[in-house]
Simulated assay, not measured.
Amino acid sequence: MEQVDVAVIGGGQSGLATAHALRRQGLEPVILEASEQASGSWPRYYDSLTLFSPAGHSSLPGLPFGGDPDRYPHRDEVVAYLLRYADRLDAEVRTGARVQGVSAAHGIFTLTLESGDRISARGVVAASGTFGRPYRPSLPGLEDFAGTVLHAAEYRTPRPFAGLGVPPAGGWGRVVIVGAGNSAVQIAAELAADARVTLAARHPVRFTRQRVLGRDLHRWLKATGIDTLPVGRFLRTPPTQPVFDDGHYRAAVAAGAPDVRPMFSGIGGTKVTWADGSTEEVDTILLATGYRPDLGYLRPLGALDADGHPRHREGVSTTHPALAYVGLEWQRSLSSNSLRGVGRDAARVAGRLAARLRAH
């Protein structure tokens, strides 16, 4: 069986930042990436996605994003940046290496890959992020809805997917988007040019100004230290993220394109029943309801709770001292699972993991 120093599971922004930090600690990580390129979930996001943090605040350690630091990079720019980062990284990146399970005995981890290969490692960092497992909430009647149900992870463009029936061949028609976060609002505003769209949410949409006193909000979050506050461990239920807006989305909602309503109370056939008792025909329900950690490969370790969430403290496992996490939402700070913050968490976790391995 092949033996490695530290196995980093996931080759997106979290895994790349972690490998960089581990190398600085004198360790030799091997990145195991399930897909065919080291760019994480970014290639699978919708076509029009842009970062809500500017390029100057969206770099991983050791390589500036490049270009105008005040611009908001497009999805494809992020993919290109991550591939460039991986090429320059002084660590081995193995693509097409999906980890199916991790076990441990006598202080050594054994990773079983989908290919059947097995690898032993002194340490493991789960850096597969929080975007690999789309969250589909249990909504009344949703399983019997006769129209089209999509998750935001499956959405790419307002243009109908010709011949696939998703969305319906005649167009999007009447659309209800479940959610009130950045993706929900961005997709809703985009679709509203081609369809009648409603945002349905349990909580009102909260907008926050993208620029304050002429500077991007993230500049102030960094300058005040708010971006790095270790608040994650105090939040049993992380708050709903505000929608970063330059005024465009707030104006679209004010104009009713999309409109916003409280969550519907039921679904029957192709009809949605709203909280006020009214019903209407709906063609498509799109779930912009976020994601959950994609960590099923750790179940053999007993490292997860009943809901599949890791048992950890600021990224260090509380069940296995040489197991760590990077890229979890609210892992330590409000920027833990973002390009702008994942490097800080990676450095902390790498330092603690290196100390553990040196001591044993």
Rank of each mutant, 00 (worst) to 15 (best):
L213M: 15
L235M: 11
T228K: 12
T228Q: 12
A252T: 13
R236D: 11
V243Y: 04
R209S: 12
T224M: 06
G225W: 04
P239I: 01
R233F: 02
R215K: 14
R209T: 11
L213Q: 10
R211V: 05
A223H: 04
P238F: 07
F234E: 07
L221N: 13
A252Q: 12
P238R: 07
T224C: 08
T237Y: 11
L213P: 04
T228E: 12
R233Q: 06
L229H: 09
T224A: 05
T240R: 13
R236V: 09
R206K: 12
P239V: 03
R209P: 03
R206A: 15
R211T: 15
R215G: 01
R250W: 04
F244N: 07
R219W: 15
R236Y: 06
R211I: 05
T228L: 09
I226W: 13
A223Q: 10
H218Y: 13
T228N: 09
V231A: 06
V212P: 09
R233A: 14
K222P: 00
D216P: 08
D245R: 10
I226H: 04
H248D: 11
G247A: 07
A223N: 05
T228I: 03
V243T: 00
Y249M: 06
D227W: 14
R219V: 15
A255D: 13
L235G: 08
D246A: 15
Y249I: 02
R206D: 10
D216Q: 05
R250N: 05
L213E: 07
Y249G: 01
K222I: 09
V231K: 01
R236K: 12
G247V: 03
D245V: 10
G214P: 04
P238Q: 09
Q210S: 14
R209L: 11
R206C: 12
T228H: 13
Q210H: 03
V253D: 08
R219N: 13
I226N: 08
K222A: 12
F244K: 07
L213T: 06
L229Y: 05
K222Q: 10
A252D: 11
R250Y: 04
D246L: 07
R250H: 08
R236N: 07
L235H: 01
R209E: 14
A252N: 07
L221W: 11
F207E: 04
P239T: 06
G225A: 11
L221G: 03
Q241D: 14
A223Y: 03
H218C: 08
T224R: 02
G232Q: 05
V212L: 15
V212H: 14
D245P: 05
T237S: 12
G232M: 02
A252P: 02
